[in-house]
Design a protein around this nucleic acid. Structure first.
Length: 763
DNA sequence: AAAGCGGTACTTTTT
DNA sequence: GTACCGCTTT
């Protein structure tokens, strides 16, 4: 039973066998961290520990799923199934549903995602008549999130002198008020946001000693993966649960901490020895993944960080090729070059597409890469980006599901009250909002009682409101009568969503249609799939489905079928964490992009970017290639770029500049080359300025003017800043109301009101 | 109330 | 380039 231990090296084995008491494992990149975690759990099980007494926390659903699969291979499915293994958010959401009454929430509380939270905050800002530029919803949310992750509730927030003076100094004194209102509204909607799942777990364990005791007794062994990414809130939950017997094993790598931006705190790793003075420390330093050149280059990069735990990652693997650096002229060239190398190396070495990954800092960079890959017919898959469950049409359908399950859900309500259009517009919704606020009731209750509330609605509006509430109520009574799939079908039909999308066959609509069908087929799979106990075809309701998917976000949408696994992977570096690929390209390694512009001001943030760079390099097994572009098209205009400082920081002996990608010597050289290429650019644009059409040149702006109807005639060619060139089909009206119908080459027929449209006459 | 337009601002990463 | 806002017209 324990012969699998032989597959581990010395320190790995020790870490697996130290089952009792606090243990910290510092695991360098590629050192077999997941292996240690899975074998440790298998080992615990082999000692007779019950799987339901083991709590194992991860950061992504994917990591949890993969680990569960690997454990199942070691100890069998039945045991693996009863493990408490999942993300912090999903495990504690599960517990909160069981204990919800203690906190005054219904068991079917809704989980708001970031998008819902932002919308709610936006509404509150509007209602408070605050300027949404000073109170940018994203910023407000991040402040609130930060407070929650540090267990500062609205009352504490408003009473904390330092916070208040900081907010006042930043001229945002109303943040505390917004926080309070936001929390009230969440509660009224019977909803929790992501951070509340952790915050409220802390409240539960703090205020209900019997509950704490129960879970302490239950979880006798606790494991935490990616411990460097835990925030204070998560740290405290773990600490409380483990307080009884301290059988706690945390695994992490300070060099791979890349989530400080959302509250992760490396201090948790650094402070472990303070909390558990008799802890055992194991360091996994042998890298099994990468060549020597890759490991050494990555080490030389991370060495520039000050905040570090000392460790020496090394490998016995072959030396391998040096890390290649390529300088591209622009992002299209960069993408074409990468695609070209994949094409070439694939052929030369008989490699599958799946041997390659292209990593980048921001999702926006994928576009050029996709185009280049498509040109060479190289199959690829993009991970991340806008996830399935975030797409508008999917969220719309889910909002119906949510409202039926929990009619108090304010965000779901305002999302679908008039979608598909049923004649209940902003005016009506605003009146309902005001009434709900005044009476302290939810939007749903306001809509239900609209006639009694005397809001001055006409009979038609009242009628439409009643129709809507009746529909939702009617569907609600069927929640436990039909299974998730059957009810989902009914909802899509009765709500009019199916009709709305299926009557329109624009390409966009077709795509949306497909997404809705995919969601429904997901419901079908859910209904058919065996449940936790392994029984098939059990009756599973929509409400269970929603609990299942509330915390799925990224590429959790069904791992693609076996036939399409042979693809090049494209993803952000964040998404690549924990993965490995034989050949890795890192694109856009330029100042202001990587490191990100926003991080350059602070050392801590810059160090996080550097860790991100370290993560990127250490994904590569055989070959890592870094590319950067001299110019990049961003936000609709050209930007000149300099190579990232991270390239300079790599020790020269481990890297290989490809022709043209010469190292720059000093800061002055950098500036010279910058101004030189700027001069060259000017020359080029001056030289080619005759048609001025293809060069999106800033000077051309002035050429777009407001024309009068008299200046335009049918068949004239005009240019529009957004729509490009087109032919005038018709000119109607005169004076200020003159309208022109223009057929644009790329955008089709558009009607332009001439007093607004800026046009240029081409011929 | 809805649709369609032009203008503006925004872009890091994710449970 | 895109999402969203707010203005206008129907």
């Amino acid at each position: 039973m324990t012969d699998f231990l032989n597959e581990l090296n010395e320190p790995q084995q020790e870490a697996v066998k130290a089952t009792e008491g606090p243990v910290m494992v510092i695991a360098g990149a590629g050192s077999g961290k997941t292996r240690v975690l899975t074998y440790r759990i298998a080992y615990l099980l082999s000692l007779g520990i019950e799987p339901f007494n083991i709590l194992s926390l991860t950061f992504t659903n994917k990591a949890a799923r993969e680990m569960k699969e690997r454990i199942a291979q070691l100890v069998g499915h039945s045991k693996a199934k009863s493990l408490w293994m999942g993300t912090f958010h999903s495990i504690f959401a599960r517990i909160l549903r069981v204990e919800s009454d203690k906190l005054g929430f219904p068991a079917n509380f809704t989980i708001y995602d970031t998008d819902d939270s932002k919308r709610l905050i936006k509404n509150i800002i509007k209602e408070q008549n605050l300027d949404d530029k000073t109170y940018n919803p994203g910023y407000v949310l991040s402040r609130i999130s930060n407070a929650k992750n540090n267990l500062i509730g609205p009352i504490d927030y408003n009473e904390d002198f330092e916070i208040q003076s900081a907010d006042t100094a930043a001229r945002k004194p109303k943040l505390g008020l917004l926080y309070s209102i936001y929390q009230q509204r969440l509660r009224k909607a019977s909803a929790m946001d992501f951070d509340d799942l952790l915050f409220n777990t802390n409240v539960l364990l703090r205020d209900f000693p019997d509950v704490l005791y129960k879970y302490q007794q239950k979880f006798t062994y606790i494991l935490v993966d990616e411990y460097q990414d835990t925030n204070f809130s998560q740290y405290l939950i773990v600490k409380k649960l483990a307080a009884n017997n301290e059988n706690l094993c945390v695994v992490g790598d300070d060099a791979q901490s890349i989530y400080a931006f959302r509250g992760a705190n490396i201090a948790n790793i650094l402070n472990f020895k303070k909390d558990y003075p008799d802890y055992k420390l194991y360091k996994l330093e042998q890298n099994y993944r990468s060549t020597q050149n890759i490991v050494n280059a990555a080490n030389s990069a991370i060495a520039h960080n000050k905040d570090q735990i000392f460790k020496k990652v090394w490998t016995q693997n072959e030396q391998g090729e040096k890390v290649k650096i390529y300088k591209a002229a622009n992002e299209a060239d960069e993408a074409a070059w990468i695609a070209g190398r994949i094409f070439e190396w694939r052929a030369q070495q008989q490699l599958p597409n799946s041997a390659f990954a292209i990593l980048y800092r921001t999702n926006a960079q994928s576009r050029a890469l996709e185009e280049a890959l498509r040109k060479l017919n190289i199959p690829y898959r993009i991970y991340g980006g806008v996830s399935f469950y975030q797409r508008k049409e999917v969220k719309d359908v889910l909002a119906y599901f949510r409202l039926i399950i929990n009619p108090q859900d304010e965000e779901a309500f305002s999302r679908i009250i008039n979608f598909p259009a049923r004649g209940i517009g902003d005016t009506t919704l605003n009146k309902l909002r005001v009434a709900a606020e005044e009476k302290g009731i939810s939007l749903w209750e306001a809509a239900l009682n609209a006639p009694a509330l005397q809001l001055g609605f006409n009979a038609g509006t009242l009628n439409r409101l009643q129709e809507f509430t009746l529909m939702i109520k009617g569907l609600g009574t069927q929640l436990f009568k039909y299974n998730a799939f059957e009810l989902g079908e009914k909802i899509v039909n009765q709500s009019g969503i199916r009709k709305f999308y299926f009557e329109d066959d624009s390409p966009e609509s077709i795509n949306r249609k497909e997404n809705i069908e995919e969601l429904l087929s997901g419901l079908k799979d859910f209904v058919m799939a065996p449940n936790e106990e392994g029984e098939e075809n059990t009756f599973r309701t929509l409400d269970e489905f929603m609990q299942d998917i509330a915390l799925l976000t990224d590429a959790d949408t069904k791992t693609s079928g076996p036939e399409d696994t042979n693809k090049v992977s494209l993803m952000t570096i964040h998404a690549a964490k924990g993965l490995e690929f034989p050949y890795v390209f890192i694109g856009g390694v330029e100042e202001n992009l990587f490191p990100s512009q926003l991080s350059i001001g602070s050392r801590a943030e810059l160090e996080e970017e550097r860790r991100l760079f370290y993560v990127a390099l250490t994904r590569a097994m055989r070959q890592a290639t870094i590319t950067w572009a001299e110019t990049r098209f961003r936000y609709g205009n050209f930007n000149f770029c300099e190579p990232s400082r991270f390239i300079d920081e790599l020790k020269p002996e481990f890297i290989d500049y490809l022709p043209g990608a010469k190292p720059k010597k000093s800061q002055q050289a950098k500036q010279e080359s910058f101004s030189e290429s700027f001069k060259n650019f000017r020359k080029v644009s001056e030289a080619t300025s005759q048609p001025a059409q293809s060069a999106p040149d800033a000077a051309a702006d002035g050429d777009f003017v407001i024309l009068t109807g008299a200046q335009l005639m049918p068949d004239m060619k005009v240019q529009h800043q957004r729509f490009g060139t087109g032919t005038v089909a018709k000119v109607e009206g005169g004076g200020p109301d003159a309208k022109a119908t223009v057929i644009f080459a790329n955008f089709g027929k558009k009607q332009l009101l001439l007093k607004f449209a800026r046009l240029k006459i081409v011929s």
